[in-house]
Each structure stands twice: as structure tokens, then as C-alpha cells.
């Protein structure tokens, strides 16, 4: 997080969620940003980049959360948090992490990680075994980042998830959020760096 020089209370957090198209990372970014805006106190902007094909290509979603009145440049530059759901994203974006930035990888899909302090968690496998579908791995990640950072309360995260899915999918996604939030909460000591 950036301490703003003009105002010591201010902060800015830059998050990048990266993987393959179809992994739901744009949705994940959207929900993180939505939760931030729903606090009523924070500003957020979410951007994305993707190829012409919806599935299989590289996909990336950036979220900037801040209490600045305006966020100018809307893309992440120096990452506070990088979530990588495939190897390509890990190699490509890890150099953009700040010194104290946190790297989170799916331990099955990014098996070899050089950074000793990287947080490794089987998001996709957990989604399959705990909830019965890999589709909700993205929401486990949302919960994880929520629990890790502690900036977004569980209440707004639940609201952001509830309002982003149709009735039929809400239950599974809320469960995914709970799991992620709990596991992410175990790593809050990492936030001391920031």
C-alpha cells in the first residue's frame, strides 16, 4: 500500500488477478472493486485485458482500491498483491511486485515458485473438493484477498457476491467466499510489511 505524502490517512492498494480466460478472474476483480465501493468510504477501479476469444487465452484483471477521491491511471503498476492462476501469469507479472508485495499462487497450477514467501494455496482443487465445482475458485480467491488484507469487511464482500450472482449460484459462491476468507485470514501477518 502506498502512503500518500499529502495525507497520512490515505492509502492505495494495487491488485492484479491473472490466469486464463474462463477462470473467472475478471468477475473476481469486479467483486473486489464492488465490495470496496460498497463500503461507502473507498474508491475503486477495475480494468481488464483479454484476447478476442472468451476462453483459453490470457486474461487479467486489475483492481485499484484507495481512499483517494480520484484514481487517475487506472491500471496496476507496482503490485501490492498478485494472484496467479497459471504459470504464464506468474512469470510475467511477478517482477511487477513491490518489495513487500504479496504473491499468491494456485499451488497446483503454478507448482514451481522461487519466491520463498509466496503464499501457495490450492484454490481450484479446493473449489472442486469442498464445493463440487472448480468454477468458484475465483470467489475463494476474492475471499482470500478479503481475509488477508482486512480492508474489506466480510459484510460488504458478502453483499458484493450476493448482488453479482443469480439466485441459483449465490449459495455456492457465498460458501466459496467463506472458505477463502478464513484461509486468507491466517496470513494477515503479511500485511505488516505494507
Amino acid at each position: 500500500m502506498n502512503k500518500n505524502k499529502q495525507n497520512k490517512e490515505s492509502f492505495k492498494m494495487e491488485v492484479r488477478l491473472a490466469g486464463s480466460g474462463g477462470q473467472g478472474l475478471i468477475t473476481a476483480g469486479m467483486i473486489l472493486a464492488k465490495a470496496a465501493v460498497l463500503t461507502g468510504k473507498l474508491n475503486a477501479v477495475q480494468t481488464q485485458s483479454y484476447g478476442p476469444e472468451a476462453r483459453g487465452g490470457a486474461s487479467r484483471s486489475d483492481v485499484i482500491i484507495s481512499d483517494y477521491e480520484q484514481i487517475y491511471y487506472p491500471k496496476a503498476r507496482k503490485l501490492d498483491i498478485l494472484l496467479a492462476f497459471n504459470e504464464e501469469s506468474y512469470y510475467k507479472y511477478t517482477p511487477l511486485l513491490k518489495g513487500a508485495g504479496i504473491l499468491i499462487v494456485d499451488e497446483k497450477y503454478v507448482p514451481e515458485v522461487k519466491e520463498k514467501n509466496a503464499i501457495r494455496f490450492p484454490f481450484i482443487t479446493t473449489a472442486k473438493t469442498e464445493i463440487g465445482t472448480p468454477i468458484v475458485a475465483n470467489i475463494i480467491a476474492v475471499g482470500f484477498i478479503g481475509g488477508l488484507t482486512g480492508i474489506l469487511g466480510k459484510k460488504v464482500l458478502r453483499e458484493a457476491v450476493t448482488t453479482s450472482f443469480k439466485e441459483a449460484f449465490r449459495k455456492k459462491n457465498l460458501k466459496a467466499l467463506e472458505i477463502g476468507y478464513r484461509v486468507g485470514g491466517k496470513h494477515t501477518e503479511r500485511m505488516k510489511f505494507l
Binding site: 472493486a33 464492488k34 477501479v45 477495475q46
Partner: peptide, 8 residues
Amino acid sequence: TLAHMREK
């Protein structure tokens, strides 16, 4: 960028 950007 602006068209697909989500923002407050």
C-alpha cells in the same frame, strides 16, 4: 479501457 472499466 473506459468502456469496460468498472469504477465508483
